[in-house]
Simulated assay, not measured.
Amino acid sequence: MRLRFILSQVGQGLSRNLAMTISVALVTFVSLTFVGAAALLQMQIDNLKNDWYDKVEVSAFMCPEGSAQPGCAAGEASQEQIDDIGALLASAALEPYVDEVYLESKDEAFAAFQEQMADTVWAQSLTVDQMQVSYRVKLIDPEQYQIVADELEGRPGVEIVVDQREQLEPLFNILNSATLLSLGLAGVMIVTAVLLITTTIKLSAMSRRRETGIMRLVGASNLFIQLPFMVEGAIAALVGAVLSVGGLFVGVRYLVQDWLAGTTPWVQFVGTADVLVIAPFLVLAAILLAGISSVVSLGRYTRV
């Protein structure tokens, strides 16, 4: 009997404030979509780091003939200097950081250049003697690249030390900024959703003051009086959460997996399974939104 009464009150409240209920669902949908998009973007950044950081190398290019770098004032790197760098990379001091070391000779560098730049004028104009010897160092932990780079920079015969991670960091910084922007917009929309849900519950409570007054007179508890209003807010917020999960699922399925993954197959993109991972958190966030809004608004209008 009590359940039927509560459900009838919920139905009346939703029908009386249908426009506001739809507004609550839409604002919740937009705010949680931003939250979910930020979470998926952070997952994508983690995937990229896991894929690309494992391939990060520190390259030490030895001085070629005629280099203008201050460290190459003595001319082209001698065999002794090249061997000294190799010994340094194989030393006990760098053993905890260095996984593999590959020495690329002038001939190998020339062959690689010819293969990569076969259709350019440069490929026809350069000779083997103009290439330079280099060391390619694969790291055990790419996060510690600076330690190896610091050891190599300034050594006799070393022209320049190039860290591939430096080329990736700007991309990750942009993606992290996009994540922060999404979270900022989500925060604004969440505040808007809380205010809108609070207003909706207040209007519903004010329109039913007579019913709540009668319930007080017959001895109904605060919880019994407030429960229909709480359920109304929860339903509207949950509808928004379901729309958010559905929107993210469709976006990832067709925009990311079908389109982006097809154009860049070498990148591991987030998938629909990741959307399902964050879906419970979005639903929980919707419940928290409705709960916070109910606590803020119901005390003044329904408390016995």
Results as ranks from 00 to 15, higher is better:
77 A>S: 15
102 Y>A: 14
84 D>I: 01
89 L>K: 08
93 A>F: 05
82 I>A: 09
81 Q>R: 03
98 V>L: 10
119 D>T: 07
78 S>D: 12
68 A>W: 00
108 E>T: 10
96 P>F: 13
76 E>T: 07
74 A>V: 01
70 P>G: 08
70 P>C: 13
65 E>F: 02
82 I>L: 09
79 Q>E: 14
114 Q>A: 11
78 S>C: 10
101 V>G: 13
121 V>T: 11
117 M>Q: 08
88 L>E: 13
97 Y>W: 11
80 E>A: 14
77 A>K: 02
87 A>Y: 02
111 A>Y: 00
107 D>L: 09
80 E>M: 05
111 A>C: 01
95 E>W: 04
73 A>W: 00
79 Q>K: 12
68 A>Q: 11
78 S>P: 03
81 Q>V: 07
78 S>V: 08
108 E>G: 04
71 G>Q: 06
108 E>M: 07
77 A>G: 11
114 Q>D: 04
94 L>Q: 12
103 L>E: 11
75 G>Y: 03
78 S>G: 14
76 E>H: 03
109 A>W: 02
124 Q>P: 01
97 Y>Q: 15
106 K>N: 10
122 W>M: 14
108 E>W: 00
112 A>E: 11
111 A>S: 11
70 P>R: 07
96 P>Y: 12
65 E>Q: 14
108 E>F: 01
99 D>N: 15
116 Q>T: 08
101 V>D: 13
79 Q>S: 13
91 S>R: 07
84 D>T: 05
73 A>V: 08
110 F>D: 06
120 T>W: 01
94 L>R: 11
85 I>Y: 01
72 C>P: 02
72 C>H: 03
106 K>V: 07
99 D>I: 13
97 Y>A: 14
66 G>C: 07
68 A>H: 02
118 A>R: 05
65 E>T: 10
66 G>I: 07
77 A>I: 06
101 V>W: 09
85 I>W: 00
97 Y>K: 12
93 A>K: 14
125 S>Y: 05
124 Q>R: 09
101 V>Y: 11
83 D>W: 01
67 S>H: 03
87 A>E: 14
79 Q>H: 03
114 Q>P: 00
123 A>D: 04
104 E>T: 09
100 E>I: 11
97 Y>H: 15
115 E>R: 09
75 G>M: 07
94 L>S: 12
74 A>P: 00
122 W>F: 14
108 E>L: 09
86 G>K: 04
76 E>L: 06
121 V>G: 05
96 P>T: 13
87 A>S: 12
80 E>H: 02
87 A>Q: 14
79 Q>N: 12
116 Q>F: 01
77 A>Y: 03
123 A>E: 04
119 D>P: 00
106 K>L: 09
115 E>H: 04
92 A>M: 08
122 W>I: 05
97 Y>I: 13
89 L>N: 06
122 W>R: 00
82 I>S: 06
117 M>R: 07
117 M>W: 11
102 Y>I: 13
77 A>F: 04
116 Q>M: 05
97 Y>D: 13
